[in-house]
Design a protein around this nucleic acid. Structure first.
Length: 604
RNA sequence: GGGGUGUUAGUUAAGUCGGUUAUAACGCCGGCCUGUCACGCCGGAGGCCAGGGGUUCGAGUCCCCUACACCCCGCCA
């Protein structure tokens, strides 16, 4: 009898066969997805990455094959040979292969399976902890198979797009010199250089700029990056970037290239036509209306910045407001329409929610007929003029509810930004994945070059020190650094930053002034970035670029709820791998070779 | 570093006011069944209630600590 694999080769996948194949002799390989044993007939759903096919074993056809089929259990790996037969009146409309079944004449069990810790089903309730511990089983499930297949497709399309557009796919080192500032680096001790460490690259930033200086003009790379920061739903310690850099370009040229890629991805993967050009919004407007630089534009609910009004009215008899604006704080409000009314209990829950983000409380006012405020501790004391001014600024109607935050700008912005999204979710304002009209791409542009760092007491680069300031603002570098805006841009989709980049600073003279404004001495600059500063002096072309978060793109494309669902082998929130138990202990001998000693002492 | 939620058979959950033998579904094991596709029917096994400490005559249930997982703030140029 001929043998499977060596002699009997697979003819089809388990998602392929249809009524067009009736009568064919086929060979399928796969996993037992489900079994229904009726005694004289055994039905097996055979699964591979392409789909599921029903295989039937009948007692009166091949008794010994039927007997073996009766022993099959879930997740056994088998090969079968048989004939494609119509299901007649028993069509299964939910299966792509539901018109047919394969009547098996041969069966080989390649491997049995112990009962799996959880069942391999499309919809699974099992704790993510268990799924991660047995990730290879989790990955057998159709939704994750589909996601990773999409991911492979995005890789392929991206590579083709850039290569066809004249970009060169060039590599950069992962093991690099540590440079301070920015994300925390993973460090790799150097055995050959006692006491020295490599850093794992948090991005190819400096190397891609050096490629431009070396004359490679248009570069891209689909590249892994490493950051030793705390994890989030949309953040993993190693992640993949679509990294791009171009010479002789301005901001609009970068936008053109990236919009072209995104439009193609959405068309090819989802069949969706995304309109171009994407909306552009100044950083300032985004902060003012939405509280952050990655607004979700699928719903409105903008903030109203009341800082100016409150100042004009000297706090309007409300000591808390007065103190807030006089102490350098800001005041913001958000309007909830009358038909979005929340119960007292819900508002109390909201207050707990915002306190968790550092808010002192959640001031509110219900608008009565005639613009009076009720249900508010502010109602009694606030000057009527300020109250009216606020009503007008927020555009309230009777029955509306105003929610307020005031105080430290960063806290107010964070709280209000998260509150906006939180409320939109609760009010059902965000359309479900796949329901159409939900792809709100946005370029956030022209942010300030510096932000004031209260800890150190001087201006620091808001993003990185090699972003080009607007030419007309260069004059303020020394006198009013906060006024200098720059050619930095973020690509935002539905509340996620999916990319960010800038036009780079290629002029060494301006570069020196930027360092000076940041309080970095020539010596410091030389120590940290000497090689780049030297390079900029030797014929650096005007250049700029961007990096897109590949994982986040795939997450949004597939409707996944977590980055962990689009990364094949993700880490937990504490950065561990539950399957392999990384990170793990190492031998004392290894540490000695690396000139490393651990100071860790376990608790207790 | 801080705030919050959770942890009960292999899996997902229930478990009332603190009360005596901790339930169910799916999975697993045995048996029957030729048209099922969430197959069905009969029978069975399976528990250190995350770990530790405390309160109590008595703790899955109340309190404290620890561990792990998840969400958020800080952090992520």
């Amino acid at each position: 009898m001929p043998r499977f694999i060596t002699e009997i080769k697979r003819t089809n996948s388990c998602g392929q066969l249809t009524a067009n194949d009736l009568g064919k002799e086929v060979v399928l390989y796969g996993w037992v997805h489900n079994r229904r044993d009726h005694g004289g007939a055994v039905f097996i759903d055979l699964r591979d990455r392409d789909g599921v096919t029903q295989v039937v074993f009948e007692e009166d056809v091949r008794p010994e094959v039927h007997a073996l089929a009766g022993q099959l259990r879930l997740e056994w790996v088998v090969g079968i040979r048989g004939k494609v037969v119509s299901r007649g009146g028993n069509v299964n409309a939910r299966l792509k292969t539901g018109e047919i079944e394969v009547h098996a004449t041969e069966l080989e069990v390649f491997n049995r399976s112990e009962p799996t810790p959880f069942q391999i089903e499309d919809k699974l309730d099992t704790a993510e902890e268990k799924r991660l511990q047995y990730r290879y089983l989790d990955l057998r499930r159709a939704p994750l198979q589909k996601t990773l297949i999409t991911r492979a497709r995005v890789n392929h399309l991206t590579r083709n797009y850039f290569t066809d557009s004249g970009f060169l796919e060039l590599e950069t080192p992962f093991m690099v010199k540590y440079t301070p500032g920015g994300a925390r680096n993973f460090l790799v001790p150097s055995r050959l250089n006692p006491g020295k460490f490599y850093a794992l690259a948090e991005s190819p930033q400096l190397f891609k700029q050096l490629y431009m200086i070396a004359g490679f003009d248009r570069y891209f790379q689909i590249v892994r990056c490493f950051r030793d920061e705390d994890l989030r739903l949309d953040r993993q310690p190693e992640f993949t970037q679509i990294d791009v850099e171009m010479s002789f370009v301005e901001q609009n040229d970068v936008f053109d290239v990236i919009e072209g890629l995104v439009v193609r991805l959405w068309k090819e993967v989802l069949g969706v036509d995304v309109p171009r050009p994407f909306l552009r919004m100044p950083f300032e407007e985004s902060m003012s209306k939405y509280g952050n630089d990655k607004p979700d534009l699928r719903f409105e609910m903008p903030h109203t910045d009341l800082t100016g009004l409150v100042k004009e009215h000297g706090g309007g008899n409300v000591p808390m407001l007065k103190d807030a604006v006089e102490g350098g704080g800001i005041v913001k409000a958000m309007r909830l329409a009358a038909d979005q009314a929340l119960s007292r209990t819900e508002i109390d829950k909201l207050e707990e929610y915002v306190k968790g983000m550092g808010a002192k409380g959640l001031a509110r006012a219900k608008i009565a007929e005639g613009g009076e405020w009720t249900q508010s501790p502010l109602a009694k004391t606030i000057a009527p003029e300020l109250r009216q001014a606020i009503n007008a600024a927020c555009g309230v109607q009777p029955g509306d509810l105003l929610l307020f935050q005031f105080g430290k700008p960063s806290t107010v912005q964070t709280v209000m930004a998260n509150l906006r999204v939180h409320l939109a979710k609760r009010l059902g304002l965000i359309p479900e994945y796949g329901s159409g009209g939900q792809w709100r791409f946005l370029w956030v542009v022209n942010p300030p070059l510096f932000e004031f760092d209260e800890e150190s007491g001087h201006w620091a680069a808001a993003h990185h020190a090699f972003t080009r300031p607007h030419d007309e603002d260069v004059q303020y570098l020394e006198t009013d650094p906060g006024r200098v805006n720059c050619y930095r841009y973020d690509l935002v989709l539905n509340g996620f930053e999916i990319g960010g980049g800038s036009i780079r600073l290629h002029d060494p003279a301006v570069q020196a002034r930027v360092f000076k404004a940041m309080g970095i001495s020539d010596e410091d600059a030389r120590n940290k970035f000497g090689f780049l500063l030297d390079a900029l002096k030797m014929g650096a072309p005007p250049h700029g670029g961007i990096a897109l978060g590949m994982d986040r793109l795939v997450m949004l494309l597939t409707g996944a709820e977590s980055l962990r669902d689009v990364v094949a082998w993700p880490k937990t929130q504490k950065g561990t791998d539950l399957m392999t138990s990384a990170p793990g202990d190492v031998d004392a001998k290894q540490l000695k070779e690396l000139w490393v000693k651990s100071t860790y002492e376990p608790k207790g």
